[in-house]
Nucleic acid binder design. Structure first.
Lengths: 229, 229
DNA sequence: GATACCTTGTGGTCTGACCACATGGCTGAC
DNA sequence: GTCAGCCATGTGGTCAGACCACAAGGTATC
């Protein structure tokens, strides 16, 4: 076993045993190295991995917030991993689109009937913001992503909404890059806006089947238009 | 930007540009450090992150296989991240079960009608192996996991089957730990075996709806019996 | 020609040092 | 007594240099 893996296992064991909890600070790099009988570079490599996994956040300086703090951010590692594997071209974009359809259809179906009026209103505000004329296209896509993640969150499943958010973020760059393939943007944007409102209305009405159908058409249509799917 | 992140971005850019392809080797740690004007520990930290993300595999020694080789393994990082976040107790087991039901229902529905006889036969062999009397319980669960992943693979979506595999692996330890909660194991195992065969039969018959329903009941029933869900 | 050895290049690890940064207490002025 | 400014302290960030273990492939020996 490599030295930094020893450190990783130790930290994971402490997490599982409850010795390390959310918000706690890891011992300093020098102290941890001393405790485990390894060198500081090995501890640092382990902390880099934990950081990449979204388990700790490090910051320099002094005070209560300094050092390596335990956080719970399952999203960022997933996003980063998806981005990297998309870059290697060994993760077909079509599979990602299909997965989005699958997850979002389920999420809006689940959200129908359990979404509170205030949650629906919050999503509505995002749609209103997207109605603004002369909205830059990148801003449009960011709001769009936020809306879809908000829908996924309504289903109340942390894992599903996390996966959704990561999928959106990982492909955001590709969506922007594909912009030239949709020269006539204005009518497309109008269609997307209308579809969003239809989906949200179906959720508010508690009509899960319609919501699922509408969101699937919405996603598939967009990727087809963007030549991404 | 921290130094090791600079290295990461450089590698990601090379991947996206096609300068680095699957199977290629990264320059040696010393060479890479020299090229980018950073120190070797910084390069090493970056490589640790890439390794954690399943983008490279490192090995010592000499020859064509030595060093850091580009691989495509989106599964292991996902597994590790899920394990760690389960350890922090900020990822409810119920959400994982729900996600499994969602993904597997879709997968078996998709697999119905597109699975070839040879694929079904391969899955059947796993079930036959699970029929062996006096099979150790851990071995049973491993074969069970393999069977479920095989089903997910039949749907032909890399992302979905990868997520599925990671979910299974991440919770494997918890399943084993929950074994004492199912004292009367023999009839439970018999039920699981029967359910497996029913699911596979439905897939072979092309009856997607039945397959989806059966697999959902199978998964939910198991977690309920194990007091995990 | 086959075998044992050794050269070479790889990652793995450690030591020790210095830097940048943020805090928090200390010191001095008022 | 109060407050502003300063500096000691502890943190991660980075570096240089060294040595080890390992595996391949060439080389010398028998």
């Amino acid at each position: 076993m490599r030295t930094h893996e020893l450190v990783l296992h130790q930290v994971e064991a402490d997490l599982a045993a409850g010795k390390l909890r959310l918000g706690d600070r890891l011992p300093g790099e020098r102290a941890l190295a001393g405790q485990l009988g390894v060198s500081r570079p090995s501890v640092r490599e382990a902390i880099r991995v934990l950081e990449a996994m979204g388990v700790v956040r490090t910051s320099v300086g002094s005070g209560p917030d300094a050092g390596a703090v335990i956080v719970a951010d399952p999203g960022s590692p997933l996003t980063a991993a998806l981005r990297l594997h998309l870059a290697t071209s060994h993760l077909p974009m079509g599979d990602i689109v299909q997965t989005r359809v699958l997850l979002e259809s389920w999420a809006v179906r689940e959200a129908s009937g359990r979404a509170t009026p205030s949650q629906v209103a919050a999503a509505q505000q995002l749609l209103d913001a997207m109605d603004e004329p002369d909205l830059p296209r990148e801003r449009f896509h960011l709001l769009d992503a936020e809306f879809h993640v908000a829908l996924a969150t309504l289903a109340g499943n942390v894992l599903v909404s996390t996966i959704m958010a990561s999928l959106r973020e990982a492909i955001h760059g590709y969506v922007i890059a594909a912009a030239p393939h949709v020269p006539d943007w204005t009518p497309v944007a109008a269609l997307l806006r209308a579809q969003h409102r239809a989906v949200l209305a179906a959720i508010a009405d508690g009509d899960g089947d319609s919501a699922a159908k509408l969101v699937a058409e919405h996603i598939e249509g967009f990727y087809k238009a963007s030549r991404l799917g």
